[in-house]
Simulated scan of single mutants.
Amino acid sequence: MAELLSVTKENGIATVVIDNPPMNVLSNKVAKELDEVFNELKEDREVISIILRGAGERAFMAGADIKEFPDRGKQKDEIDVHEVFSKIENIPKPTIALLNGFTLGGGLELALVCDIRIAEDHIKVGLPEVNLGLLPGAGGTQRLPRLIGASKAKEIMFTGELLTAVEAYRIGIVDQVVGKGNGGREAEELARKFAGKSLQSLSRIKHLINKGSNLPLEEGLRLEKQLFDELFVTDDAKEGVRAFIEKRQPVFTHK
């Protein structure tokens, strides 16, 4: 049973809330619970889309738990954050990160593994590890340059300075900026749109984009053809085509 995360489910949407006050930092326990919760959500047939957010209004996640740093590598139960984040990145369901407060260090790195990022306009984001003589160690040096380009990513990491929500939107770190307190509604509306689609389609689209972006074009196209052929014979594809011909909304069973 998770203690620092809570999960609610409704109408095909799971909302995961990180609740590690006061700033929802990424402790070893939070990482373990993220691993457990997302493993469960991956197998949950009732869940189609997932929202990840922080409790309260102060932080989505304000970095790693620095108090644990002196004992890093000494704990027998220490979990590999890279593995956890990669699992979240590749879960075969759409994920939305709702950035409802400070999103720093490991918090931004966690947000980067989600498919969509919605930011409330009061937030700050950044990778300030250089100020501690460290570097982003949970995927930031690899994922951020792929998202916004190498030069801008270097500037952000070299300076360790924080960006406003608007600045983060302008360079492509976040996909939407909404007013304070409105992020939950926007995330739920988008998650509902996703949940109304076929998971057979959604999972293959996500896999093709995540994997294909690291493949030569010809290999990516071959993979696309393979997954399209697989999808074409599913019950949901047949239902979607039939509903279009009959001029009605499809009823997907995710099979």
Rank of each mutant, 00 (worst) to 15 (best):
152 K>N: 11
189 E>L: 05
207 H>T: 10
163 L>M: 11
166 V>N: 08
171 I>A: 02
152 K>V: 15
202 L>S: 02
162 L>A: 11
206 K>S: 08
200 Q>C: 05
173 I>V: 15
196 G>Q: 03
159 T>F: 05
208 L>E: 11
154 K>R: 12
165 A>Q: 01
201 S>K: 09
180 K>I: 15
204 R>C: 03
187 A>P: 02
172 G>H: 10
155 E>A: 14
177 V>Q: 04
177 V>Y: 08
187 A>R: 07
190 L>C: 12
174 V>E: 00
169 Y>A: 13
180 K>Q: 12
185 R>A: 09
206 K>P: 06
185 R>L: 08
185 R>G: 08
176 Q>V: 11
205 I>M: 14
146 R>S: 09
165 A>E: 00
162 L>E: 03
159 T>L: 07
155 E>F: 14
197 K>M: 14
154 K>T: 05
197 K>E: 14
205 I>C: 14
191 A>N: 04
190 L>W: 07
172 G>V: 03
176 Q>Y: 14
179 G>E: 12
187 A>V: 07
208 L>I: 13
196 G>W: 02
165 A>L: 04
204 R>H: 12
175 D>I: 00
183 G>P: 07
181 G>M: 04
154 K>N: 10
171 I>T: 04
200 Q>D: 13
175 D>G: 06
154 K>E: 15
196 G>F: 04
180 K>Y: 09
192 R>Q: 14
163 L>N: 05
171 I>E: 02
179 G>C: 09
150 A>D: 05
186 E>L: 11
169 Y>K: 15
192 R>A: 13
161 E>W: 05
147 L>K: 11
157 M>D: 01
178 V>W: 04
207 H>D: 04
175 D>S: 06
157 M>T: 14
183 G>M: 06
180 K>S: 13
174 V>I: 04
168 A>C: 06
156 I>N: 04
153 A>K: 05
198 S>I: 02
192 R>Y: 08
151 S>Q: 15
185 R>E: 05
195 A>S: 15
173 I>W: 01
205 I>R: 14
148 I>Q: 15
182 N>L: 12
153 A>H: 07
148 I>Y: 12
189 E>G: 10
153 A>V: 01
159 T>Y: 09
178 V>K: 03
173 I>C: 08
179 G>S: 13
172 G>L: 12
174 V>N: 00
153 A>T: 01
190 L>Y: 05
196 G>H: 02
169 Y>C: 05
167 E>C: 05
204 R>D: 02
194 F>E: 04
206 K>W: 10
172 G>I: 07
165 A>R: 02
203 S>T: 02
151 S>H: 13
146 R>P: 07
174 V>Q: 00
151 S>A: 15
165 A>Y: 00
175 D>Y: 08
171 I>F: 05
171 I>G: 03
197 K>I: 06
198 S>K: 09
163 L>G: 00
179 G>V: 07
164 T>V: 03
197 K>A: 11
159 T>I: 10
178 V>F: 11
170 R>F: 14
176 Q>H: 15
150 A>V: 10
171 I>Q: 01
197 K>Y: 13
194 F>T: 12
167 E>I: 06
199 L>D: 00
153 A>N: 07
146 R>E: 14
188 E>I: 07
175 D>C: 06
154 K>A: 15
160 G>Q: 12
153 A>S: 13
202 L>N: 03
151 S>I: 07
195 A>Q: 10
200 Q>F: 01
169 Y>F: 15
